[in-house]
């Protein structure tokens, strides 16, 4: 099942930043919850092994309900794993308490799918970027806000704007600015371009790809859309019903997919080409 041939070659050599071993996640199945008493647990993620080398980008792909977001959130300890271990920079964080976890939290950030609901509509962009920095006790916050806006290619004047005054692509770049302002090493980007127009989609992907190189970021990029993965990922993991069906270098997976499900996903992408086969 796990396609070892394409899995990252000797990740230890490159320096693994994030790794999971035999990771299981189970969540309460609210649809089956009795009126009184606990909901039964339903297994979402089954025995996932992964290694993300420092400075590399892992794409996590699958249909809706495949468990890709759950996996991402478990890696950040936003959802408690049922079994298995998660390591961050060599430290086992699987059972770490909230206090012990706090310094690690700054080093791993998240960018959300819907910038409209993940940015406080009543705060200005400057404050949105500043808040997490204040919480983590950063100094010279003012300068850091400007730096973050520069990095994502937004004018510094945007500090005084409200989220509703920005376009979808600009809002998403504010989300990126907020994440990188904390100087994290690892960023989880969960479907961050799926709500955007093609032109902003390309722009946000470019900004992110640039930052990975510039800041030496390590990235997990979750998407239901394989067509945007190839642009920025080094490795790609294809999930189906919580299990890995394919995991390997991005060019290998796109050019010679091994799993039937990966081929199905690739074939289903409507390319801008009236002659595309199998349609």
């Amino acid at each position: 099942m796990h396609d070892s041939s394409g899995a990252p070659k000797n990740p230890a050599a490159a320096g693994v930043l994030v790794s999971a071993k035999a990771l299981d996640v189970a969540l309460p199945d609210m649809a089956a919850k009795p009126v009184f008493g606990r909901a039964p647990l339903i297994r979402i993620i089954n025995g996932i092994d992964l290694d993300i080398a420092r400075g590399s980008v892992l794409g996590i792909v699958g249909g809706s309900g495949s468990g890709k977001s759950t996996l991402g959130r478990a890696l950040l300890r936003l959802i408690e794993p049922a079994a298995g271990t998660i390591e961050f920079d060599g430290l086992d964080i699987t059972r770490l308490g909230e206090d012990a976890l706090r310094p690690v939290r700054r080093r791993m950030q998240m960018i959300f799918q819907d910038p409209m609901s993940s940015l406080n509509p009543r705060r200005r962009v400057g404050a949105i970027i500043a808040d997490p920095m204040q919480m983590h006790g950063f100094d010279r916050i003012d300068g850091r806000i400007d730096d973050a806006l520069d990095h994502v290619g937004l004018p510094r004047g945007f500090r005084s704007r409200y989220p509703h005054e920005l376009s979808g692509g600009q809002r998403q770049r504010v989300g990126i600015a907020r994440a990188i302002a904390l100087e994290p090493e690892f960023i989880l980007a969960d479907e961050i371009v799926s709500g955007l127009d093609v032109s902003s989609q390309a722009q946000v992907l470019n900004v992110l790809a640039g930052l990975v190189g510039e800041l030496g970021l390590t990235l997990a990029f979750i998407s239901h859309d394989l067509s945007v993965i190839r642009r920025i990922c080094d490795q790609v993991m294809v999930l189906q019903r919580g299990s890995i069906v394919e995991y390997g270098d991005v060019d290998r997976v796109f050019d010679a997919p091994q799993a039937a499900y990966t081929r199905e996903l690739l074939d289903a992408i409507p390319l801008p080409d009236p002659q595309q086969a199998n349609w």
Binding site: V198, S199, A202, S227, R230, L271
Partner: peptide, 28 residues
């Protein structure tokens, strides 16, 4: 799809993801 005539259409087409041609797609 053989070649749009308006510059804006050309830009839209170039911005459209096309995994078979990663270098010529997703151009902002």
């Amino acid at each position: 799809f053989a070649g749009p005539t308006h510059a804006y259409s050309r830009a839209l087409l170039a911005a459209t993801p096309k995994y078979t041609d990663p270098d010529a797609s997703l151009v902002p």
